[in-house]
Amino acid sequence: DETGKFLVLSLYDYQEKSPREVTMKKGDILTLLNSTNKDWWKVEVNGRQGFVPAAYVKFL
C-alpha cells in the first residue's frame, strides 16, 4: 500500500471551491493520498484532506 508514501509539490496557489477540495499555496509540500483520478488528486495539506487539480502539483 503506497498511500501517504509520496510527496508532491504545489506549483500554483489553489483556492478550494467546494468542501471536498483543499486550499494550497505555491511551494507547499503535500502528502499524496490518492492519484487514481487523472484530473483530481487527493492530498493532505496542513492537517486537512481533500482534492486538488492534478495539473497543479508534481512529484518530488
Rank of each mutant, 00 (worst) to 15 (best):
L9H: 04
G4K: 14
S35K: 11
K58L: 12
T31D: 04
T23N: 06
W41S: 02
V8I: 09
L11N: 03
G27H: 04
K25R: 12
V45K: 11
Y14L: 02
V8L: 15
K17D: 06
A55P: 08
T31R: 13
L60K: 05
L11G: 03
N37G: 10
L11I: 11
P19R: 08
K5R: 14
S10D: 01
M24W: 02
K25T: 09
K38V: 10
K26P: 04
T23I: 04
V52A: 02
K38R: 12
T31H: 10
F59W: 09
V52E: 01
D39Y: 15
Q15W: 12
N34W: 07
V52N: 00
K58C: 15
K17Y: 05
V22R: 01
K26W: 04
Y56L: 13
F6W: 14
K25V: 09
A55T: 11
W41K: 01
V8G: 08
F51Q: 02
P53W: 05
K42S: 07
R48F: 07
K25N: 09
L30Q: 01
N46T: 04
Y56H: 07
Q15C: 11
G4F: 14
M24T: 04
D28I: 05
R48P: 01
W41V: 09
L60V: 11
Y12D: 07
S10N: 02
V57I: 10
I29P: 02
F51G: 01
L11K: 06
S18P: 03
S10A: 15
F6P: 12
K38I: 09
T36S: 14
L33D: 00
D39E: 12
E16I: 05
T36R: 11
T31W: 12
L7N: 06
Q15D: 14
E44L: 08
S10Y: 06
E21P: 04
Y12Q: 14
D13I: 04
V52W: 02
S10Q: 03
R20L: 14
W40G: 00
F6Q: 14
A55D: 09
I29V: 12
K38F: 07
S35I: 10
V43I: 08
D39L: 13
L32P: 00
W40Q: 02
N34C: 13
F59Q: 10
K38E: 10
K17H: 08
D13C: 07
L30Y: 08
Y12N: 10
K17R: 13
S35E: 06
E16Q: 13
L33V: 11
W41E: 00
T36C: 15
V22G: 01
A55V: 10
V43P: 00
G27I: 01
A54Q: 04
P53F: 05
W41D: 00
E21F: 07
G50D: 00
L7Q: 10
V22E: 01
K26D: 03
K26N: 03
P53R: 05
W41T: 03
Q49T: 13
N37W: 07
A55K: 15
N37I: 05
R20S: 13
G4Q: 14
T3C: 15
E21K: 05
V57M: 06
N46I: 04
T3V: 13
L33Q: 02
G4V: 13
Q15G: 07
E44G: 05
L7M: 11
G4I: 13
K17L: 09
G50V: 03
Y14Q: 01
K25L: 08
K26V: 08
K5V: 13
S10C: 15
A54D: 01
V8R: 02
N46S: 09
R20E: 12
L60W: 11
L11M: 10
R48K: 11
I29C: 07
L30F: 05
K25D: 03
D39C: 15
D28F: 05
L32T: 01
V57P: 00
L33H: 04
P53A: 03
T31G: 05
K42N: 06
D13K: 02
R20I: 12
V52I: 10
K5Q: 12
G4L: 13
G4T: 13
L60H: 08
L7D: 03
K5A: 11
Q49R: 11
S10H: 04
P19K: 10
A54L: 02
L7V: 08
V45N: 10
L32N: 00
V22M: 09
D39S: 11
Y12H: 14
Y12C: 15
V52D: 00
D13S: 08
V43H: 00
L9T: 08
D13W: 04
P19Q: 09
S18Q: 07
S18E: 09
L30M: 15
L11T: 06
W40D: 00
W40T: 01
K26A: 13
Y14M: 02
G27F: 04
E16C: 13
P19V: 09
G4P: 14
L30S: 02
L33P: 00
R20D: 13
Y14W: 10
K26L: 05
N37M: 08
E16D: 04
D39H: 15
Y12I: 11
G50M: 03
K5P: 14
D13M: 04
G27E: 03
F6E: 09
G27M: 02
A54Y: 03
A55E: 10
L33N: 01
G27T: 02
P19E: 12
K58F: 10
D1N: 14
Q49Y: 08
A54M: 04
V8W: 07
S18V: 04
N46P: 03
K42Q: 12
F59R: 11
F59K: 11
V45Y: 09
L33Y: 04
D39I: 14
G50H: 01
I29D: 00
E21A: 06
P19H: 10
V57Q: 00
A54K: 07
F51H: 04
T23H: 04
L7F: 14
S35H: 11
T23M: 04
V43T: 00
G47L: 04
R20Y: 14
V43G: 00
A55I: 12
F51P: 00
F51A: 01
Y14I: 02
I29A: 03
S18W: 06
S18L: 08
M24L: 08
Y14R: 02
K42T: 06
M24Y: 02
S10E: 01
K58A: 14
V43Y: 00
P19I: 10
D39R: 13
S10M: 06
W40A: 01
V22S: 01
K26Y: 05
N37A: 08
S35D: 11
G47R: 04
K17E: 08
K58I: 15
T36N: 12
T31L: 15
K25E: 06
E16K: 14
G4S: 13
K5L: 12
K42G: 04
T3P: 13
S35V: 09
E16R: 12
T36L: 09
T23V: 04
S10V: 15
Q15K: 12
K38S: 12
V45C: 09
F51E: 03
D28A: 07
L11E: 04
W41C: 04
D39N: 12
L9Y: 11
V22L: 14
K42H: 11
Y56E: 02
E21R: 04
T31F: 12
V45A: 10
P53S: 03
A54T: 05
K17G: 08
W41M: 04
F6K: 12
T36Y: 10
K17V: 09
Y56V: 06
N46Y: 08
L11Q: 05
W40V: 02
S35M: 15
D1K: 11
T36H: 11
L9R: 09
G4E: 13
F59M: 15
K26S: 07
E16P: 15
T31S: 08
T3K: 14
L9D: 00
Y12A: 13
N46R: 10
Y12L: 10
W40H: 02
D28V: 05
Q49D: 06
V22H: 02
K25C: 09
D13Q: 03
F51Y: 15
L32W: 03
Y56T: 07
T3G: 13
V8S: 02
L32A: 02
R48C: 06
N34R: 06
Y56M: 13
Y12G: 07
K26T: 06
K58M: 15
L32E: 00
V8H: 03
L32F: 05
F6A: 12
G4R: 15
W40M: 06
S10R: 04
L33F: 03
L9P: 00
K17C: 10
P53V: 05
L9C: 11
E2L: 14
G50T: 01
Y14D: 02
V52T: 01
K17W: 04
S18C: 10
N37K: 06
L11F: 05
E16V: 05
Y56G: 07
M24S: 00
I29E: 03
K42P: 01
S35R: 13
L7C: 12
